[in-house]
Nucleic acid binder design. Structure first.
Lengths: 179, 179
DNA sequence: TATTGTTATACTCTATAACTATA
DNA sequence: TATAGTTATAGAGTATAACAATA
């Protein structure tokens, strides 16, 4: 609050934008998680995994599936196990490379996504789109797309021990198969 | 006329903006959490609580402190206990109303915030501000502020059992005294 | 040897409900 | 009775490290 708030040359406006962004998304995510849990018994992460699978012709490797959604390998194993237990995906070793596990979304999984999506979108609309003009939305999409791509391109700071290559692309670029 | 009454019809652009937003913030939050943990041994929630206290002349009631940061009362009690154990805050009953617990940030708490803030801002700058022009940032701040305020004004869907008023304000709008 | 994925384990966090104490 | 906060407890999720199997 003093006059010499030299936080490394960051304008108050920047800080305001940053905190508004974080808080708004936090609120949005909380609402969205409640909707997903109530209407589909899914966590946000699980929904993302299913959506990604649905988007990728129904099948991805564990590694491809993990990117950008989950930040540790074991975390994905855990979530995949949950989804499998719920009958929403199956797992099977790839015949190409026996080390690889192919995760496949089941009809029930597709159904679940379809069942949850309208309510999900409704929440997003009510909280996010309603207060925005078309122009705002266009701007927001443009800005956040650029930010996201920038973030993906950032090298991992503390050089992760293992794979940790640059996050996801399969969602928008399905043929990014691994070697 | 598919824009107003048609519920399932979300423009692809809207959906794209929504997912870009969620993914970008998720990446940002992950980076920010790593920085806070590494440089200050704080979680994002804990940082927010401390920042809020610092912003509010160092002292708030549990209820005021909870708003928008934590979504259950016991959750705040837990976090406050962690912060107290770390010597970053103290808790004491208010003399006005003996039911109320006043949380006060300690000098060590203020130090911790000060120690963590530059690195925190640096992460935000690198990931969020760098790819944006001044104009973008202005837009983003404007948009997200409006969205956040809209969200705060939304009535809680499943009528929360107790207090649950509209979230945070003290951080950017310090005179938002508690109810 | 490098890579894919799983397991074991420990820990953090969150939420619900029951409870205490004060107004 | 209503409100502020705590406690007990249970469950979801995450991360690290050790491991097995395949390339």
């Amino acid at each position: 609050m003093t006059d010499t708030d030299d936080h490394g040359t960051l304008e108050p406006e920047q800080l305001g934008a940053y905190f508004a962004l974080m808080e708004a998304v936090s609120l949005l995510q909380h609402s969205v998680e409640q909707q997903l849990r109530a209407e589909g018994d899914l966590s946000w992460v699980q929904f993302q995994l299913l959506a990604r699978l649905a988007d990728a012709h129904g099948q991805l490797t564990m590694t491809a599936l993990a990117d950008g959604v989950v930040y540790s390998r074991s975390g994905l194993t855990y979530q995949a196990a949950q989804l499998e237990r719920a009958g929403l995906v199956t797992r099977a070793p790839s015949s190409d490379d026996e080390r690889v596990t192919l995760v496949t979304i089941t009809p029930a999984g597709l159904e679940r996504v379809a069942a949850v999506l309208p309510g999900h979108i409704e929440v997003a609309r009510r909280l996010l789109f309603d207060p925005l003009a078309d122009d705002d939305l266009h701007h927001l999409g443009d800005i956040m797309t650029r930010v996201r791509d920038h973030m993906r391109a950032q090298p991992p700071r503390s050089a992760a021990p293992r794979k940790r290559r640059t996050p996801t692309d399969e969602l928008t670029d399905p043929d990014a198969a691994q070697t």
